[in-house]
């Protein structure tokens, strides 16, 4: 905003003798108008973001007035008895995201490495495009597929198998229902995989050829080249891919709502039905009012805070790893 203000009050009469400098041009009125237009656009975009936060805070405020602050971390969601604990949903959000990320990071990275360095050139572009295009498949389509195809498969095959093999961990207690935390996590994994793959592949592919050849020429095996040189060289970008994928998983709504079972209790096993903050909001929004509606806005606020925290944390990590390097460079 100061940028807009400064040029305006000084319509400096440029001496005609002097050549018109860039500085001088910027002061001339039409250019000034142009700059103002750009600045106005920028202000609108910034204001929208601020408005979003302020609006949600204001709407969620009544819930804090009525319930204090502790309700966010309480365990019971029972609107008919005035209980609006968000803990089951916060946990459900984090758990389903964790399942998705745990699957997507190794598989996505391996796929990206294969696409960037292993797959023959001719089919490389076809496979890459296929993976990227699937990032564009609408989430509701994944949800529908998960509900109709995967849920029965999970009930009859996947969950009994996992229970038989890993039952002793206690992670797979309870009946095989198909829908639940595990299926939600797996659907999220399928959904964030293209994001993870597409970005990681791009950053892995731009690691300079000289680095790769340098390692090769020292007698490194193919895997040593990838593991010791290529992946570390792309770590900043991989972290960015991870963040974006995590953000998508945290905020994904309808696909999860369709397959998680929507149970307002803390899941005691991976097979249990659960709920996430977005699924809570979307399932109850239509028929709520008063404190419940405010509590749903509160849930949106909590989700926003989690989303922005993850985003900022990853940004800081990227900044500190790359910034650490450049600081070392200055020494």
């Amino acid at each position: 905003m100061t940028m807009v203000d400064t040029p305006a009050p000084t319509p400096a009469p440029t001496p005609p003798v002097l050549p018109v400098t860039r500085q001088g041009r910027r002061l001339s009125l039409p250019d000034n108008g142009y700059r103002t237009m750009l600045a106005v656009a920028a202000v609108i975009v910034g204001a929208l973001a601020v408005w979003l936060v302020v609006a949600i805070v204001i709407q969620a405020h009544p819930a804090f007035v009525t319930l204090g602050y502790s309700w966010i971390l309480q365990k019971t969601w029972d609107p008919s008895h005035g209980k609006y604990g968000l803990l089951p949903f916060i946990l459900g959000t984090l758990e389903s995201t964790a399942i998705a990320v745990v699957l997507a990071v190794p598989i996505g990275l391996g796929t990206a490495l294969a696409l960037a360095y292993l797959v023959p050139h001719r089919i490389r572009s076809v496979l890459s495009t296929a993976v990227e295009l699937l990032a564009a498949v609408p989430s509701v389509v994944y949800g529908l597929w998960g509900l109709v195809v995967l849920a029965p498969l999970f009930r009859t095959t996947v969950e009994p198998f996992l229970t038989a093999v890993f039952g002793w961990t206690g992670l797979f207690d309870g009946p095989n229902e198909g829908v639940g935390l595990l299926l939600a996590g797996v659907i999220l994994f399928v959904m964030i995989l293209p994001t993870m793959v597409a970005i990681s592949r791009d950053v892995l592919a731009v690691v300079p050829k000289e680095q790769v050849e340098g390692a090769m020429a020292l007698g490194a095996t193919r895997w040593q080249v990838l593991h010791k040189v290529v992946v570390p060289g792309a770590r900043t970008g991989i972290l960015g891919a991870f963040t974006l994928a995590t953000g998508r998983a945290l905020g994904e709504t309808v696909a999860v709502a369709m397959v998680i079972g929507n149970s307002p209790y803390i899941a005691h096993s991976l097979k249990s039905p659960a709920a996430t903050l977005p699924s809570l909001i979307v399932n109850n929004f239509g028929e709520s009012s008063g404190t419940e509606l405010a509590a749903l806005f509160g849930a949106g606020l909590v989700l926003l805070v989690i989303g922005i925290s993850v985003n900022s944390l990853a940004r800081w990590l990227v900044w500190s790893t790359s910034g650490g390097n450049s600081q070392a460079g200055a020494r």
Binding site: A49, W51, L52, A55, I56, L244, G247, T253, L304, G307
Partner: peptide
Amino acid sequence: DVMTGVPSITVGIF
């Protein structure tokens, strides 16, 4: 960048 990361349900609420 942060706007890109805002969960879509939150945008719906907005």
